[in-house]
Amino acid sequence: MLAVARSLLVRALTLTGVLLAVLVLLVLSLGATGFSDRLLEAQVNEEVRGFRQSLSQTVRDPAAVERAVVERQTELEGFYGLDDPWWVRLPPMVFRVLTLDLGEARTVRTSEGSYEISDIVLDRLPYTMLLLTTSTIVTAVVGIAVGTRMATRVGSRLDRVLAYVASISFAIPGWWLGILLIVVVSFRLEWLPAGGMYSTPPPEGGFARALDLAHHAVLPILTLVPVSVGPYIYSVRTMTMTVAQEDHVLLARAKWLPQRRITMRHIFRVAAPPIVTGLLFGLAGSLSGSILIETIYNWQGMGRLYFEAVSGTPDEGLIVALTFVFTLLYVIIRFVLDVLYVLLDPRVRY
C-alpha cells in the first residue's frame, strides 16, 4: 500500500512539474519576446486616447489637457506594471492564473453575457466533454471488440488489411475527414447538419433540445471515431498478441484449461492495464484534436473557443488562460489515468 501511495506521489509531482513547466514557458515566451510589453502598451495607449478625448470636450486649455494626459499615462503604466520589467510583473499573473482567476475575455462571452474567462470555460467545457467522452466510449467498444479478435489471427490476410486500415486511419487528419464528411453527408446527401450545436431556432423543451444536440453531435463523433479507432485496434491487437505468446499462457494451455478461461483470466487480465491506459491516453490527446474538429463543425466547446481566441483579432489574455486550462485538464486526465493504472495493475511499483 505504501508503495502504491509512493508511486502515485511521484506521478503527482511529475504532473505538477508539467504544469509549472508550461507556466514558466508561457511566462518566458510572453516576457522575453517583448510580447507582453507590447500588449500592455497597446492597452495603455487605448485608454489614454479615450481619456484625452473625453477631456478635450470639457477642458479648453490644451496645455492642461496635455499635462493631465501625461499624468494619466504614468498612472496607467504604474497600474499595469509597465514600469517593472516582465520578470517582476509576470509571476504574480501566474499565481493569479494558478488560483483559476483567469481574467476577462475581450469579445467572447457566455450566453448570460459574462466576460469572465472562467465562466466562459465552464460554459463551454461540457460540450467538449460530450464529444470526447462519447467518441472515446465508441472507440473503446469497437477497438477492444475488434482488436482482441484480431489478436487470434495475427499474420492472416485480415490482419494485414487491418494494418493498412490502421495506418490510413492514423494518416488522415481528423479535420480533413470532417471536411469530407461535411461535403458528402451534409451537402450532397443532406442527412445531417453541417455544423453548429442546435437548429435555428432551437426546439422548445429540455428533451427536444437534448435530441437536437445529439443530432448535431453525430457528425463530429463520426469524425472523431474513425481517426482514433484504427490505431487503437492495432495497439489492442499487438498487446493482446504479446501477452498471448507469453509463457504463462503456454502453461495454461498445457494445463488444458478451457480457451475461454485462458482468454479472460490469463490474457485479458494481463493485457488490460495498457489497453485501458492507451484509451485514456487517446482521450487526453483528443483534447488537442478537439480544437480542430470543433472549429470545422462550429461546435461551441473549448476547442472552438481557442480558435476564436487565435483567429481574427487575437485575444492574448484568453489564449494564455486557455493554454493553461488545456494543460490543467490534460494533467488531471493523466493523473486519473495513473491512479487507474495502479489500481488495475498490482505489479506497478516504482
Binding site: V22, L25, I291, Y306, T323
Partner: peptide, 10 residues
C-alpha cells in the same frame, strides 16, 4: 506530458 497542440498554437 505537455499537451502539444495548445502549446504549439501558443
Amino acid at each position: 506530458n505537455v499537451p502539444t497542440l495548445p502549446l504549439l498554437i501558443f
